[in-house]
Nucleic acid binder design. Sequence first.
DNA 1: GAATGTGAAGGTTTTCACAGCA
DNA 2: TGCTGTGAAAACCTTCACATTC
Lengths: 216, 216
Amino acid sequence: MKKKISDSSIHRLSLYFRALSLFEMENYETVSSKELAKHEKLTPAQIRKDLSSFGSFGTRGLGYPVHELKNKIASILGIDRSWRVALVGIGNIGSALVSYKEFMKHGFQIIKLFDNDQRKIGSNHKGIIVSDIKNIQQELKESNIQIVIISVPATVAQNIVDDVVEAGVKAILNFAPINLRVPDDVILRNENMSMELEYLSFNLVNYSQEDDIEEV
Amino acid sequence: MKKKISDSSIHRLSLYFRALSLFEMENYETVSSKELAKHEKLTPAQIRKDLSSFGSFGTRGLGYPVHELKNKIASILGIDRSWRVALVGIGNIGSALVSYKEFMKHGFQIIKLFDNDQRKIGSNHKGIIVSDIKNIQQELKESNIQIVIISVPATVAQNIVDDVVEAGVKAILNFAPINLRVPDDVILRNENMSMELEYLSFNLVNYSQEDDIEEV
DNA sequence: GAATGTGAAGGTTTTCACAGCA
DNA sequence: TGCTGTGAAAACCTTCACATTC
């Protein structure tokens, strides 16, 4: 057991979960890898391979039981429970994330907010009082926070992450456009929104229709 | 020429650009693949490979000229120019993106906003008057929009994308948690913020320290 | 001496194709 | 018959290692 699961495979599990939620709402009992593949623009073989690394969930000749598979994936992804999340930096992006319903839907409960701006400290965002970042270590521990979202300017992000790590948090989602250093036992992911726009511009510049005629 | 550049390679170019901007600010003249690699937690070989698919930018024994390479990458990524961007859906996420400075820094100018909410239409966000989504096709064409950002609820996203495509836009960045259909000549990228949180929870659940002892 | 540029090797991920089961 | 589960093959991506250049 316990082969390494690839990053892309984990990401695809999120897609499967989302697709299955939709199929469930439309009262599908079962769904085939082919249908799922079509829905998410993937190949049936890939879906079967992905799922097979966690077990045999389907029935030959029939497909996968929608409700059951959805629950199974939720459990694999760890979104069948509630996660205690804190968010640091109540700027543009930060405020938007506090109200972002998709997070709650998947069990990510933002229950603590931090900022260093005196005007924001003590204010109420969606029922949460903003704490002073000075007390972050203590408060993260007290509230048993499991995941921290960083949405502060790049210049201060590393210092904050150091505090967060020292407070014992093992999972961090970083929106600051900078590469942060964390110890090996801490999982860090970056959300870099410019990156996808740059991907678009790269493709607009390099692969516009006309080019396709040429070869080699 | 014209080998296919991989998605991850394009994404890494964005990282190189960011790192080079920093090195430039610190007045580095040249930088080696080793230094860049350390900065972005990659391998030197990978950086050299990535860059070599676009040309020979370095000097053996010396490294890469920071300023020049930065400009070169900007040109490859197409961020050495200004892009005309429209944003649809002035909700939580939408409003945050309008004020997101990283976009402007990389040449992505949000110059049109659309919404279907009568209370928002006509209002002013960062100097832009929100247009009625009814007129989206005409206004996208009139303003020569090249990239559209979708930040509307999942239920209405496909309809809007259909309009956007019909207006001739070839690049779309989608924040709605749904898989959108577009023709082959339109580039669509998805920004799925829950996905990264789910990646974190997967790892918290499946790979906590203790497990590492076991094998096979 | 130092660091690039790059074929070749090695590793990982995806796809194929089919045996096996409902 | 229809669709899963899975080894094997193919495709893709990363790392190695070294000849080459400054």
